[in-house]
C-alpha cells in the first residue's frame, strides 16, 4: 500500500527542486521549465489528495462526482492556465532573445529602482 505521504513527498521534492532551479539558473527558458515543473508538482499533490480523500468510496458517480472530482478538475484548470502561460511566456522569451541573443536573467534589470 502506497501511503499518501509518498506521493506528497515526491511532489514536495519536485516543487523544491523547481524552486532551487529558478533561483540558481540564469537562462530564462530553463527558469520557465522549472516553473512548469513546480506546477506539475502541485498538480501531483492535487491528484493524490483527490484520490486519497476519504469520501471517494461513497455514493455513485453522478451524485457525488462534483465532490470528489474537485482535485482533478483543479488540475485540469492548472493545465489550461499553464498552456496559456506557456504561450505568452514563450512569446516573451522569443522577443527578449530577438533583442539580446545571449540572455542572462541577471542582465534583465532595466526596471530596478
Amino acid at each position: 500500500m502506497i501511503p499518501l505521504s509518498a506521493y506528497l513527498s515526491v511532489s514536495l521534492f519536485l516543487f523544491l527542486t523547481g524552486l532551487v532551479g529558478i533561483i540558481i539558473r540564469q537562462s530564462p527558458v530553463v527558469m520557465f521549465m522549472c516553473i512548469e515543473m513546480m506546477l506539475n508538482a502541485v498538480n501531483l499533490s492535487f491528484v493524490s489528495f483527490a484520490r486519497y480523500a476519504p469520501w471517494v468510496a461513497s455514493g455513485d458517480i453522478t451524485q457525488t462526482a462534483s465532490q470528489w472530482m474537485t482535485g482533478e478538475i483543479t488540475v485540469l484548470f492548472v493545465m489550461a492556465v499553464a498552456a496559456a502561460e506557456v504561450a505568452v511566456g514563450l512569446g516573451m522569451i522569443m522577443s527578449i532573445y530577438k533583442n539580446e541573443p545571449d540572455v542572462n536573467v541577471d542582465a534583465l534589470s532595466n526596471l530596478k529602482g
Binding site: 501511503p3 499518501l4 505521504s5 484520490r51 468510496a57 470528489w68
Partner: peptide
C-alpha cells in the same frame, strides 16, 4: 499523514 488509508475508488473515478 503517513497512516492515511487508501480508499477503494468507485467505478468511474477519474473517468
Amino acid at each position: 499523514l503517513f497512516g492515511m488509508q487508501y480508499p477503494v475508488a468507485d467505478e468511474g473515478f477519474g473517468s
